[in-house]
Computed example of a mutant assay.
Amino acid sequence: MLSVLYVGAGGFLGAVARYGLGLVPLWPGLPLTTLLINFAGSLVIGAVVEAAAPARAALSPEAVLFLKVGLCGGFTTFSTFSLETLELLEGGQYLAAGAYAVVSVVLCVAGVLAGKFLVRALMPAA
């Protein structure tokens, strides 16, 4: 039962942070805020996974639930990304939609990798 509370608390904080950041308009006509939120969430989830790896074991299972499942799950917005890509397509902005989709995926995978490397650099394996 406590696991549900860890996930719920993290999810609440992640969702509220995502909502607040989503109110910041960065570029009219292009969902750049969502792209940056997804990148930040990808960076954090990469760092959490690496910090929780058996070689480091720097995070408790409860912390992993709170951060990875709760906070990152509530913060990252891949469903919003999908909706916004579809809206660009429906608006006839095919090049923008394609570029947005490709850049989002590449940048977020790079964010996970960067998060893992960051933890590896700051917390060498035991």
Rank of each mutant, 00 (worst) to 15 (best):
A47S: 12
V48I: 14
R18S: 08
A51R: 06
A96N: 08
G14P: 03
I45H: 04
V106D: 04
A96Y: 07
G8Y: 08
L32K: 00
A126L: 04
N38Q: 09
G92E: 03
T80L: 03
G70Y: 14
A97Y: 09
A110L: 15
A53I: 09
G11W: 00
V7Y: 02
L89E: 00
P54A: 15
A114D: 05
L89G: 01
A55F: 05
L107R: 03
F81Q: 04
L107C: 05
L71M: 11
K68C: 04
L118D: 09
A97M: 03
V16F: 01
G14M: 07
F39E: 02
N38Y: 14
A121R: 14
L21D: 07
V119Q: 08
L23I: 03
E50D: 09
F117Q: 15
Q93H: 14
L13K: 07
T33D: 00
V119M: 13
T76D: 10
A110P: 11
G14S: 03
K68Q: 14
G14K: 02
T33K: 00
V112Q: 03
L2H: 07
F12Y: 15
W27P: 02
G22E: 07
S79W: 12
V102M: 14
Y6H: 09
G70I: 13
E62L: 13
C108D: 06
A58E: 15
G46K: 05
F66S: 10
G29Q: 11
T76A: 03
S79M: 03
L95F: 12
F78C: 10
A17F: 14
I37Y: 11
G74W: 11
G41Q: 04
V4Q: 07
L113F: 10
T85N: 13
L30G: 03
G29T: 13
V48G: 12
C72M: 11
E62T: 01
G111Y: 08
L118Y: 08
G115W: 09
V44Q: 00
V7T: 04
T77S: 11
G92N: 04
G115E: 13
A55N: 05
G8N: 05
L122G: 01
P61S: 06
G41C: 08
F66C: 09
I45Y: 05
G10S: 14
G111A: 05
L83T: 12
P28A: 11
L83Q: 06
V112M: 15
G20D: 02
G8D: 08
G73M: 06
C108K: 06
K68A: 15
G70S: 14
V106A: 15
L23A: 05
L43Q: 03
A15D: 09
A126E: 10
V105R: 06
K116M: 15
V106M: 11
